[in-house]
């Protein structure tokens, strides 16, 4: 009962507190939710379906570039462009997924192929003048225009990412209880057995891939509108792929709250290590790598898994 109250309090704080926060903590909070959102999106394919993608940047970049190009070249509002980007990304996800799953790629081989696809998109974007190549694309955000996903202040952006995160949470929760959700878990645990039991593994995995890609692409549009600049390295590079999956791993892949918890833990950890170890280049990332190794070794189910085990032991 106390747990529900705590959760309620947290939600209330997230909704009501930000207008009173100074800009800098608000900035951090937006960052946390952004990575929580990406983690939630990744989690559908990586955590629930158990297909570990190292190349989600492909979908992120497709989302960012689609909405931005439609905005810059055709004047289409990024709110709509966002959806277009999501659909395109889902399509690419289906293409990538079909090739990979049809040819039986599993485990690390699947991970490597997703990495390769993201890198290929990056190299193409770098060399394609029509999408701006390495010069990148600047999103005009000097004049506020809410209908065009441009706000004068940080606060509206916060509520957008909060809404996206809440939506992703809800979606994950609902999904976990549908047939597709159970099918995904079955495939994750033992694909061959699931197939034998009549589950359409290919269909399930492809659905997860499309959904995960769609959601990730929306995050790409948010990034473009918030940071006002995109280029091939930022959007298609391995950095965003890794940063997107870490919250899910640390928090607990395959759980609803895992990515959220992971993001809320990881960001302060990285801020703290940066603050403590200022002036020593790389010491914070070194610690970060150590933390990652420790979490994988001792909390393989992530924080949620660890909390559950503790609670079970407590009786």
């Amino acid at each position: 009962m106390g747990e529900k109250a705590l959760a309620g309090l947290a939600v209330a704080a997230l909704v009501a507190a930000p207008p009173f926060l100074p800009k800098y903590p608000l900035e951090i909070l937006i960052s946390v939710l952004f990575f929580a959102y990406l983690g939630l999106a990744w989690n559908i394919l990586g955590g629930y379906a158990g297909q570990f993608s190292f190349g989600h940047a492909a979908f992120f970049g497709i989302g960012a570039y689609t909405s931005t190009l439609l905005f810059l070249r055709a004047g289409l509002s990024p709110w709509l462009g966002m959806l277009a980007g999501g659909v395109l990304a889902a399509g690419f996800g289906l293409f990538e997924g079909y090739l990979s799953f049809r040819y039986g790629l599993r485990g690390p081989y699947f991970s490597l192929v997703t990495l390769a696809f993201a890198e290929m998109l990056r190299v193409v974007a770098v060399n394609l003048k029509v999408v701006g190549a390495s010069i990148g694309l600047v999103i005009p955000t000097s004049a506020a225009a809410p209908a065009l996903f441009v706000f004068a202040h940080k606060l509206p952006y916060y509520y957008v990412i909060l809404a996206l995160t809440a939506g992703a949470l809800l979606l994950t929760r609902v999904l976990a209880r549908t047939r597709l959700g159970y099918a995904l878990v079955a495939v994750r645990e033992n694909e061959d057995a699931a197939e034998a039991a009549g589950v359409n593994a290919l269909g399930a995995k492809l659905s997860a891939m499309a959904l995960s890609a769609f959601l990730t692409a929306l995050g790409g549009t948010f990034y473009a509108q918030y940071f006002a600049y995109i280029d091939p390295t930022i959007t298609f590079g391995p950095g965003i792929s890794i940063q997107g999956l870490l919250p899910a791993i640390v928090g607990g892949a395959g759980t609803v709250l895992g990515p959220l918890l992971g993001a809320f833990v990881l960001t302060p950890v990285s801020e703290l290590t940066r603050a403590l170890l200022r002036g020593r280049a790389g010491a914070d990332i070194m610690l970060y790598g150590l933390v990652l190794m420790l979490v994988i070794s001792f909390l393989p189910q992530g924080l949620i898994g660890w909390l559950r085990t503790r609670r079970m032991r407590a009786g």
Partner: peptide, 27 residues
């Protein structure tokens, strides 16, 4: 110690190790 861990966790393990070693050199 992680020999029986899920394959993707082993991947992440070596990734964490890579981050650690690269930044150790940087420091």
């Amino acid at each position: 110690p992680n020999r029986d861990a899920a394959e993707h966790n082993q991947l992440l393990l070596t990734l964490g190790l890579a981050l650690f070693l690269e930044n150790l050199a940087l420091v």
